[in-house]
Nucleic acid binder design. Structure first.
Length: 826
RNA sequence: GCCGAAGUGGCGGAAUUGGCAGACGCGCAUGAUUCAGGGUCAUGUGGAGGUAACUCCAUGGGGGUUCAAAUCCCCCCUUCGGCACCA
């Protein structure tokens, strides 16, 4: 038998063992408590990086721990396999996207298996498989029938590099989330999923997500951007046509000195008809609105006038570039005194500014305002509402306008519908046919899937590659049977990832994407782990999808993920690892040098999961040293085996000594150390995912075991066994190998997790800190049974303490039992 | 600009409920190992002062609450993240 720690050998051995024995495959077992653990699946680009490794290793600790806890664990893996990089590879290397993708999957599978993660590989999901994407189409049709899918012409985010449109969520700082190119606005007809229909529920249920990171929840709240206010109807002076405007500040309506229309507002055409001279300026403003970001405010008088319903005042209507058509009604009432944008605009064009909410410092001079006053104050210039606080006036004016039918209550959301059309090849074809006679016709369910054709030329030029495939485009109308054409756009790949967790749970439905029974058993995901970059992308889409599927009667749950852990990045030299910075650390190389257990151990030890992790080779070496220490500790005490009742094989370790009382002083201390460590490791895994401190306490245990005097004892042997059990979720291969060498037969993941008992944690003596006026001056060791008076008397009698309280009177003695005594003297 | 998170030794980080600041690891130093190196083992390691016992200072900065603050409150600084004409 090899006495040296050779990680590469034992790791291969056990990975094979797990695969052959299907150790981690899971079945529906209704009598057992389930635990669905999920990590965000990888995209099928070249190879896995340290970020993936971190994600999956964190998950694996929990999975193996839960197995040991007796849960029926589901821990699946698969691949996010549709997407643009496959097409880019086709352009650059002339390789077909499908071939490129499956070739990468093979590589990734190998790399993932090298990490020794406890996946149930039998449930692997690959989103570009026909058997998967057909269900995207099936959902699309279901949504279509329910009115959750629609087509509209609208300004869309166009990425010139990816040559496709993007959803709002995929535009970060006006750049493409994938390639970083500046986004252009283009008016195009696209398919949308009606996520806004669920805006209210998506928002409301955020607060029920008790185990989601507050930052993610906050980001979703902001993204949905609910705002409550009034829609007020202004009328044109000439023909009483209504112009509704949205405001959250109805209390400021008496301060409205003009209205502003977005250049895209329908009334603008009317204004141009009357005064052609403004057309050029309007067109210019439209162009300016295509660029997001800081553009100087610009406007023009429309020539139209409106009546303020509350005071019958005639006010001018402007057209300006700072009013968006996509939000509210595309028109606003401008209250320059109390809105900074209107203020800026009014100053530029010399428009009247009328204070209606008086600031506390205000001198009642209407021209004295230096900037818009946006806080609360006392109402002025507001007829019957003068003198009220603006807060109260907001309610009263709303109520009054509502009764007078001048306005209605209104809630607006920043959230926009999800644009899912992509002008790309490598994705799910949108199952729609356009017939010159019947119009837009959804492909009937029984005709699904609409297969993605294999024979394609991907050049990167022109429109969608599918457009050029006649055999795909030309088809017969499912309704009338005449010649028709297919939709050539494919779906956003975020559709794929919006329900893959359901497919993991059940893959057996022939007529359905999954069986209700299995999905209802496994869902929701008990713990989801992934990067924070999906806070408002994948995580919001998946929540929406789950709710929509629930309303279609396909699943029971309305929220997919009960607990979410967003892990930090892996960085090197203070920056995210990237090719351009040349600071990439290859996981494969590290595994080759130190073994995967050391890589896992380092990742888990160097930082708690939610913060960024700085990659340090020295740190990795530290863990490698630790694993060697464990290895030597156990292998050098192997001979103990013979002393253990001569047993040669056993499946479960039955601990006799560490759970029974002893009078031996050394043993009592060892026992306490063991139970303390069990407690610490259990709580760190269970409550906080603080694997770094769990490992630290295991290191302390190892240090302690090194220094322990009676290594031949049975309790010592049991301690080593407990060590292997506690360490197993973190670095499973070495533990499994050492367990085998100590005679254990079976898989440690099926061995019960050790339990601690409080009675073995108790010490009979404890060190008490003695403070004088809050400063530590002495310490003493006392029996824990000692009463309050005795402890305080002892403390006051200490020589060192007497020095500090000499000549002073004792005002108070604060006594925190078993911790400290603080003497307040003066 | 608005919203949010974080700031602790030379470094990564610990301190779970307001109660011993710096666990554990890296690095460094000294020693041991039938002295190449490496490995391993042992000891030490926040700063300043002192021969020493010991004293003082210290959790981004300033104030406060408290017997007691890394932890709670107020102001400010720095870094990172999100949003950005959303009326």
């Amino acid at each position: 038998m090899n006495l040296q720690y050779k990680p590469q050998e034992i790791e291969k051995k056990w990975q094979k063992y797990w695969e052959v024995n299907r150790t981690f495959s899971s079945r529906l077992k209704k009598d057992k408590e389930k635990y669905y653990l999920l990590e965000m699946f990888p995209y099928t680009s070249g190879s896995i990086h340290m970020g993936h490794v971190r994600n999956y290793v964190i998950g694996d600790v929990l999975a193996r721990y839960k197995w040991m806890r007796g849960f029926n664990v589901l821990h699946p893996i698969g691949f996010d396999a549709f997407g643009l990089p496959a097409e880019n590879a086709a352009i650059e290397k002339g390789i077909h996207p499908r071939e490129w993708t499956y070739r990468n999957i093979k590589i990734l599978e190998g790399q993932l298996k090298q990490l020794g993660i406890s996946y149930d590989w039998e449930r692997e999901v690959i989103t570009c498989d026909e058997d998967y994407y057909r269900w995207n189409q099936w959902f699309f049709i279901k949504f279509y029938k329910k009115g959750l899918v629609y087509r509209k012409k609208a300004l869309a985010n166009w990425c010139p590099t990816c040559r496709t449109v993007l959803a709002n969520e995929q535009v970060i700082n006006n750049r493409c989330y994938r390639c970083g190119s500046l986004i252009q606005q283009k008016e195009l007809t696209q398919w949308f999923l009606k996520i806004t229909e669920y805006a209210e529920e998506l928002l409301e249920e955020i607060e029920n997500l008790a185990h989601w990171p507050p930052t993610v929840k906050k980001m979703q709240v902001n993204w949905i951007g609910r705002s409550e206010g009034m829609e007020i109807k202004f009328k044109l002076t000439e023909n009483s046509v209504e112009i509704p405007v949205f405001t959250t500040r109805p209390d400021t309506i008496f301060g409205a000195t003009y209205l502003v229309l977005s250049p895209h507002h329908p009334l603008v055409k009317e204004a141009i008809r009357k005064n052609v001279k403004i057309e050029k300026e309007v067109e210019r403003m439209k162009r300016e609105q295509l660029i997001k970001g800081d553009v100087e405010k610009r406007g023009i008088i429309s020539g139209l006038w409106a009546i303020n319903p509350v005071n019958e005042e005639k006010i001018p209507i402007w057209i300006a570039n700072y009013v968006l058509m996509e939000y509210g009604t595309g028109a606003i009432m401008a209250v320059p005194a109390h809105d900074e944008r209107d203020f800026e605009f009014a100053k530029k064009y010399g428009l009247p500014i009328r204070v209606v909410v008086s600031p506390p410092y205000w001198n009642h001079n209407q021209n004295s305002l230096k900037e818009a006053y946006m806080e609360e104050g006392i109402m002025v210039n507001s007829a019957q509402f003068n003198g009220l606080s603006s807060e109260l006036a907001r309610k009263k004016i709303s109520k009054w306008m509502f009764e007078q039918k001048m306005a209605t209550h209104k809630v607006n959301y920043k959230l926009r519908d999800w644009c899912i059309s992509r002008q790309r090849y490598w994705g799910t074809p949108i199952p729609i046919v356009y017939c010159s006679r019947c119009g837009v016709v959804p492909v009937p369910e029984e005709n699904l899937p609409v297969k993605l054709p294999f024979d394609v030329q991907i050049t990167g030029k022109g429109g969608s590659p599918l457009k050029k495939i006649d055999s795909f485009v030309k088809c017969l109308c499912p309704k009338c049977g005449r010649e028709a054409v297919r939709e050539t756009d494919t779906m956003d790949t975020f559709v794929d990832s919006s329900w893959y967790f359901l497919r993991y749970a059940s893959q057996r439905g022939d007529h359905l994407p999954f069986t209700r029974e299995e999905v209802d058993y496994w869902m929701p995901v008990d713990q989801y782990i992934g990067g924070i970059e999906h806070a408002v992308l994948h995580l919001l889409y998946s929540r929406f999808f789950t709710k929509a599927l629930r309303d279609l009667g396909l699943v029971k749950v309305g929220e997919p993920f009960s607990r979410l852990l967003t892990q930090g990045m892996v960085i090197k030299d203070g920056a995210k690892m990237s090719k351009s910075k040349g600071n990439i650390v290859d996981p494969g190389q590290m595994i080759k040098e130190y073994g995967v257990d050391a890589v896992r151990g380092f990742i888990l030890f160097a930082a708690p999961p939610e913060v960024d992790l700085e990659w340090k080779k020295e740190g990795l070496e530290g863990i490698y040293r630790f694993l060697n220490r464990v290895w030597r500790l156990v292998t050098s005490n192997l001979r103990i085996k013979a002393t253990y009742e001569g047993e040669r094989q056993w499946k479960f370790w039955k601990f006799e000594k560490i759970y029974s009382s002893t009078k031996n002083k050394e043993e009592i201390e060892l026992q306490r150390m063991i139970h303390k460590t069990i407690k610490k490791v259990t709580e760190d895994i269970e409550q906080r995912f603080h694997f770094n401190t769990a490992l630290a306490s295991l290191m302390e245990l190892v240090n302690f075991l090194y220094g322990y005097s009676f290594k031949g004892s049975l309790m010592y042997k049991e301690s080593l066994q407990v060590l292997l059990l506690l360490l197993y979720p973190f670095t499973p291969h070495i533990c499994q190998e050492l367990a085998e060498r100590t005679g254990y037969r079976g898989d440690l993941s099926k061995h019960p997790w050790p339990e601690y008992e409080d009675k073995f944690l108790k010490k009979d003596k404890v060190t008490i800190v003695i403070q004088v006026n809050g400063k530590i001056r002495d310490r003493m060791v006392i029996p824990i049974s000692e009463g309050r008076e005795t402890v305080e008397r002892e403390a006051l009698n200490r020589e060192r303490i007497k020095r500090y309280i000499q000549g002073k009177s004792i005002k108070r003695v604060i006594h925190v039992p078993l911790k400290l005594v603080n003497i307040v003297a003066g």
